[in-house]
């Protein structure tokens, strides 16, 4: 679960995004909607503790992010938050399996090869585990990125525009995979997207206005 209360993020004097209140429970799947430039990615980064809010309070998995020291927040993020960035961006210098092992290592967790293999099997890329990310197709890379995001069984799984470059069939498959993996991990899923195809596939939605004013629940 997570809860945002009275959140504002400013860049200088300019308001980037504001969220008066938003609470999501464990196991729920949310769409974070809004037009381009509405601050969807910023909200994901706020929940992940990648950037601090200018004002307001963020609680994720019962931890107030303001209470975490910077170094502690990094490790906490590795264990608690899974992030599927828009460009996926797997680490190209290492293999598919090592991308997942790296996520375990950076979160300060023990290496768990069984978990890595099981996940890659679950997302149907186990046969590619020794390949470099550059050898994968876009769809394969996306599945690996999802597996990397859930390898540490996060409390919150955040995906930024996961269907942006996919056709209908692959978009539906990607969302289904995200939901299944979030469910398996018991995580709260938030999918930031302005893709109209996503809305019917997720039961909850939170919509940001275009002008970064006060948000309105859908």
């Amino acid at each position: 679960m997570f809860e945002l209360a009275g959140i504002e993020k400013r860049h200088g004097a300019a308001l980037a995004v504001a969220v008066a209140s938003w609470r999501a429970e464990s196991g729920e799947a949310w769409l974070l909607a809004g037009p381009s430039g509405s601050g969807k990615s910023t909200v994901l980064h706020l929940i992940a503790g990648l950037t601090p809010p200018t004002a307001g309070r963020i609680v994720v998995a019962n931890r107030d992010l303001a209470s975490l020291a910077p170094g502690e927040r990094d490790r906490w993020r590795g264990r608690t938050v899974g992030l599927v960035p828009q460009r996926l961006h797997l680490i190209g210098a290492v293999s598919v399996a090592d991308n997942l092992r790296l996520a375990q290592r950076l979160a300060g967790l023990e290496r768990d090869d069984a978990r890595v293999v099981a996940l890659l099997e679950a997302v149907q890329v186990a046969d590619l585990m020794h390949r470099r990310p550059g050898e994968l197709s876009q769809g394969q890379a996306q599945r690996v990125a999802i597996a990397r995001a859930v390898v540490n069984r996060p409390a919150v799984l955040l995906a930024d525009e996961p269907t942006a470059s996919l056709d209908d069939e692959h978009a539906a498959a990607a969302l289904e995979l995200l939901r299944a993996q979030a469910l398996e991990a018991g995580a709260t899923l938030v999918v930031a997207s302005h893709d109209a195809r996503v809305r019917p596939l997720l039961p909850h939605a939170f919509v940001l206005p275009a002008h970064a004013a006060a948000p309105r629940p859908a």
Partner: peptide, 14 residues
């Protein structure tokens, strides 16, 4: 971007 991803995965600046 790699470094940013590493930070997102839990890497500390050090």
């Amino acid at each position: 971007y790699d470094l940013a991803i590493l930070r997102a995965l839990g890497a500390r600046p050090r």
